[in-house]
Measured scan of single mutants.
Amino acid sequence: KVTYHVPNEEFARKLYKKAVDANLNVEIRVENGQFIIHIE
């Protein structure tokens, strides 16, 4: 399980798409202006 803290929405979207394309379980949320992405 990996967690990324991404300040940039564009990068967060790319990361999310890559994980989904790889059939990984992804959860994304915004906290204090940062995008928190959990990948399992």
Results as ranks from 00 to 15, higher is better:
Phe11Ile: 15
Leu15Arg: 01
Lys17Ile: 10
Glu10Asn: 04
Pro7Met: 15
Val26Lys: 00
Thr3His: 07
Phe35Met: 03
Ala22Val: 05
Lys17His: 06
Ile39Val: 08
Asp21Gly: 07
Glu40Gln: 12
Leu24Ala: 02
Phe35Cys: 01
Ile37Glu: 00
Thr3Ser: 07
Lys17Pro: 01
Glu31Leu: 09
Glu31Arg: 05
Asn25Leu: 13
Asn25Phe: 12
His38Ile: 15
Val26Gly: 01
Lys1Glu: 07
Gly33Arg: 02
Glu31Lys: 05
Asn32Met: 06
Ile28Ala: 01
Leu24Glu: 01
Tyr4His: 04
Val6Thr: 15
Asp21Tyr: 07
Ala19Phe: 15
Arg29Gly: 03
Phe11His: 10
Ile39Pro: 00
Asp21Gln: 12
Tyr16Ser: 01
Ala22His: 08
Val26Asn: 00
Ile28Lys: 00
Asn23Trp: 15
Glu40Trp: 15
Ile36Ser: 04
Glu31Thr: 05
Asn32Trp: 07
Tyr16Leu: 08
His5Tyr: 14
Val20Tyr: 07
Phe35Trp: 15
Lys1Thr: 12
Val20Leu: 14
Asn32Asp: 09
Thr3Ala: 04
Thr3Trp: 10
Glu31Phe: 08
Asn23Leu: 10
Thr3Pro: 04
Phe11Asp: 14
Glu10Trp: 09
Ile39Gln: 00
Phe35Asp: 00
Ala19His: 04
Glu27His: 10
Gly33Pro: 00
Lys14Met: 12
Asn32Thr: 04
Pro7Asn: 14
Lys1His: 11
Val30Gln: 10
Glu40Tyr: 15
Glu9Lys: 06
Lys14His: 09
Phe11Met: 14
Val20Met: 11
Asn23Gly: 15
His38Pro: 00
Glu10Val: 05
Arg13Gln: 11
Asn32Ser: 05
Ile39Lys: 00
Arg29Ala: 05
Ile37Gly: 00
Ile37Phe: 02
Lys17Gln: 13
Phe35Ile: 07
Phe35Leu: 06
Ile36Lys: 02
Asp21Cys: 13
Pro7Val: 15
Ile39Trp: 05
Val26Trp: 03
Phe11Trp: 14
Leu15Lys: 03
Lys18Glu: 12
Ala22Leu: 13
Phe11Gly: 06
Gly33Trp: 13
Asp21Met: 11
Lys18Thr: 08
Pro7Tyr: 15
Glu27Tyr: 11
Phe35Gly: 00
Ala19Pro: 02
His5Gly: 04
Val26Arg: 00
Val20Thr: 09
Arg29Trp: 12
Lys14Phe: 11
Arg29Lys: 10
Lys18Cys: 15
Pro7Arg: 13
Arg13Trp: 15
Asn23Arg: 08
Lys17Glu: 10
Asn32Ala: 08
Tyr16Asp: 01
Thr3Met: 06
Glu27Phe: 12
Lys17Gly: 04
Arg13Thr: 07
Lys17Met: 09
Glu10Pro: 02
Val20Gly: 02
Asn23Asp: 05
Gly33Leu: 03
Leu24Asn: 01
Gln34Pro: 01
Glu10His: 06
Asn32Pro: 02
Ile39Arg: 00
Lys14Glu: 15
Val6Tyr: 05
Ile36Gln: 03
Ile36Tyr: 12
Leu15Phe: 07
Glu9Tyr: 11
Tyr16Phe: 10
Ile28Val: 07
Ala12Gly: 02
Val2Leu: 10
Ile36Val: 11
Arg13Gly: 04
Glu31Asp: 06
Val26Tyr: 01
Arg13Cys: 15
Ile37Ala: 01
Glu31Val: 11
Leu15Met: 07
Ile36Phe: 11
Lys1Phe: 12
Tyr4Met: 09
Ile37Arg: 00
Leu24His: 02
Val30Asn: 06
Ile36Gly: 01
Leu15His: 03
Tyr16His: 05
Glu31Ile: 11
Glu9Ser: 04
Glu27Lys: 08
Val30Phe: 14
Ile36Asn: 01
Gly33Lys: 02
His5Ile: 15
Lys14Leu: 12
Glu10Phe: 06
Val30Trp: 13
His38Trp: 10
Lys14Asn: 08
Val2Ile: 12
Ala19Gln: 03
Asp21Ile: 08
Glu10Gln: 06
Glu27Gln: 11
Glu40Lys: 11
His38Arg: 10
Val20Lys: 13
Val2Ala: 07
Ala19Glu: 02
Tyr16Trp: 10
Tyr4Phe: 11
Asn25Asp: 07
Glu10Thr: 05
Phe35Lys: 00
Leu15Thr: 02
Val26Cys: 04
Lys1Val: 11
Leu15Glu: 05
Lys14Ile: 12
Lys18Ile: 13
Val2Cys: 15
Ile39Asn: 00
Ala12Asn: 03
Pro7Ala: 14
His38Ser: 14
Ala22Tyr: 09
Tyr16Cys: 15
Asp21Glu: 13
Lys17Val: 06
His5Thr: 13
Phe35Glu: 00
Val26Glu: 00
Phe35Asn: 00
Ile39Ala: 01
Glu9Trp: 13
Val2Met: 09
Asn25Tyr: 13
Val30Arg: 07
Val20Arg: 09
Lys17Phe: 08
Val26Ala: 09
Glu27Ser: 14
Gly33Thr: 02
Gly33Val: 07
Arg13Glu: 09
Phe11Tyr: 12
Ala12Phe: 08
Asn8Met: 08
Tyr16Thr: 02
Lys14Gly: 04
His5Val: 14
Val2Arg: 10
Ile39Gly: 01
Lys18Met: 14
Asn32Arg: 04
Phe11Asn: 06
Lys17Leu: 09
Lys17Cys: 14
Ile37Val: 12
Thr3Arg: 05
Tyr4Pro: 02
Ile36Pro: 00
Ile28Asp: 00
Val26Ser: 01
Ile36Thr: 08
Phe11Cys: 15
Gln34Ile: 15
Tyr4Val: 12
Lys14Tyr: 14
Lys18Val: 09
Arg13Pro: 02
Glu27Pro: 00
Phe35Ser: 01
Gly33Asp: 04
Glu10Asp: 10
Ala19Arg: 02
Glu31Met: 07
Lys1Ser: 12
Gly33His: 03
Phe35Thr: 02
Ala22Gly: 06
Glu9Leu: 10
Asn8Lys: 03
Phe11Pro: 03
Val2Trp: 14
Thr3Lys: 06
Ile37Met: 03
Phe35His: 01
Pro7Gln: 14
Asn23Ala: 06
Lys18Gly: 07
Lys18Phe: 13
Lys17Asn: 09
Ala12Trp: 11
Val30Met: 11
Ala12Thr: 03
Glu27Ala: 07
Asn23Met: 10
Ile39Tyr: 02
Ala12Gln: 02
Tyr16Gln: 03
Asn23Glu: 05
Leu15Cys: 14
Phe11Ala: 15
Leu24Phe: 08
Lys1Arg: 11
Tyr16Lys: 02
Val26His: 00
Ile37Asp: 00
Ile37His: 00
Tyr4Lys: 01
Phe11Arg: 06
Ala22Phe: 09
Leu15Trp: 06
Glu27Asn: 07
Glu27Arg: 06
Leu15Asn: 02
Arg13Ala: 07
Ala22Asn: 08
Val30Ala: 05
His38Glu: 15
Asn32Gln: 05
Leu24Val: 03
Asn25Val: 12
Val30Lys: 08
Tyr16Ile: 10
Glu31Ala: 07
Arg29Leu: 10
Tyr4Cys: 14
Ile28Phe: 10
Val20Phe: 07
Glu10Ile: 06
Asp21Lys: 10
His38Ala: 11
Asn25Arg: 13
Glu9Cys: 14
His38Phe: 11
Ala19Tyr: 13
Lys1Leu: 09
Gly33Met: 04
Lys18His: 10
Asn8Thr: 09
Ile37Leu: 08
Phe11Gln: 14
Lys1Asp: 08
Asn32Glu: 06
Lys1Met: 10
Gly33Ala: 03
Thr3Asn: 05
Leu15Ile: 11
Val30Ser: 05
Thr3Val: 11
Pro7Leu: 15
Asn8Leu: 07
His38Met: 14
Asn8Trp: 13
Glu40Ser: 14
Val2Phe: 12
His5Leu: 13
Val2Lys: 10
Lys14Val: 10
Arg29Cys: 08
Gln34Arg: 10
Ile28Gln: 01
His5Ser: 09
Lys1Ala: 12
Ile36Ala: 03
Asn8Asp: 10
Gln34Val: 15
Glu40Cys: 08
Pro7Cys: 09
Lys18Arg: 08
Asn8Ile: 10
Arg13Val: 08
Asn32Gly: 08
Ile28Tyr: 04
Leu15Ala: 03
Val2Pro: 05
Val26Pro: 03
His38Cys: 11
Lys18Ser: 10
Asp21Pro: 02
Arg29Phe: 12
Val20Glu: 05
Tyr4Ile: 14
Lys18Trp: 15
Glu10Ser: 07
Lys1Cys: 15
Val30Ile: 11
Ala22Glu: 06
Asn23Val: 08
Phe35Gln: 01
Glu40Met: 14
Ala12Tyr: 07
Lys18Ala: 14
Glu40Leu: 13
Glu40Val: 12
Val30Tyr: 14
His38Thr: 15
Lys1Gln: 09
Val6Asn: 03
Arg29Asp: 04
Tyr4Ala: 03
